[in-house]
Amino acid sequence: MVNETINRFSVSVSAEISNWGLKFNTEGKAPVGNATYDYLKKYNAYYVDKTDEKIAYLTFDAGYENGYTANILDTLKKHDVKAAFFLVGHYLEEEPGLVKRMINEGHIVANHTYNHPDMSKVFDEESFKKELTSLEAMFKEITGQEISKYYRPPQGRFSENNLEMANELGYKTIFWSLAYADWCKDKQPTKEQAFEKLIPRIHPGAIVLLHSTSKTNSEILDELLTKYKELGYSFNTLDELVDEESKNSKANFFSNFYNFFD
């Protein structure tokens, strides 16, 4: 049954298991993903904004609360930066106050699945759907609102099947083009180690992934955002990313349409 499901899809990305990965070739330039921008776009999935402008998108993953999110929110407010927070069911259950604060302060709250499983091993549509819709239901119960339809696969593990199913559920899958090893609670990087990765690798259109469970991120965020701004970067939201892509797609369609009649 699994093989039948897998064989329905072309193998541009491994249909069985894929770990999202990046290769940085040039400082200040977008890295190469192990799935291309154009390939991902077929499924309304993104890892970078295709732009030459110094725009970045700040995103946080939160599997649990580690005491740092309030400070992170304070810093975002200070810099007037709107971020996206990808949350799991446990976080919604335990921290409804912080979730409501995220919303009230203009941040996007998005879907990181209910149980944070390895989604690359989820092949059947019903199980995949349940991971996303269970979180949707809890979010609506807590906030009275619909969750933003952005989905990030836990640990970046996915399959082509997953991309298609997320798209069919109306979700846009969001990977990243800049991250670093910040997630281990007992092995936090130093400020210097963080900046060694996060400063030289910033690039136009970067989707930056940080974990809100990180003590280091909480401590460096103010200086990090200051440094990014000094380099000329401003911050957009995922809504603006998608809206711009939609505009570009329409513009290309009409351009091709009119060229056909020239």
Rank of each mutant, 00 (worst) to 15 (best):
E136D: 14
D118E: 13
E94K: 04
E95R: 00
E136M: 04
T69L: 14
E93A: 00
H79N: 08
E93C: 00
P117E: 08
H90K: 15
M119R: 10
K82G: 03
K78C: 03
I72E: 09
V88L: 10
E65D: 11
F85H: 02
L98G: 00
A137G: 05
P117M: 06
F85Q: 09
I72K: 07
K121A: 12
H79S: 07
E105K: 02
H112N: 12
N71I: 05
L98H: 03
E105P: 04
K130R: 15
K129I: 13
V99W: 01
G97L: 14
Y114K: 14
D61I: 04
A84L: 09
D80C: 00
H90F: 05
R101A: 09
A62T: 10
G89K: 12
E126H: 03
L132I: 13
E125P: 03
I103P: 05
K100N: 15
E136W: 02
S120V: 04
A137E: 15
Y114H: 07
V88C: 10
V109H: 02
V109S: 04
S134R: 14
V81Y: 04
D118M: 10
T75C: 01
S134T: 14
E105R: 09
K100A: 04
A84V: 05
G67L: 08
D124E: 15
R101P: 12
L76F: 01
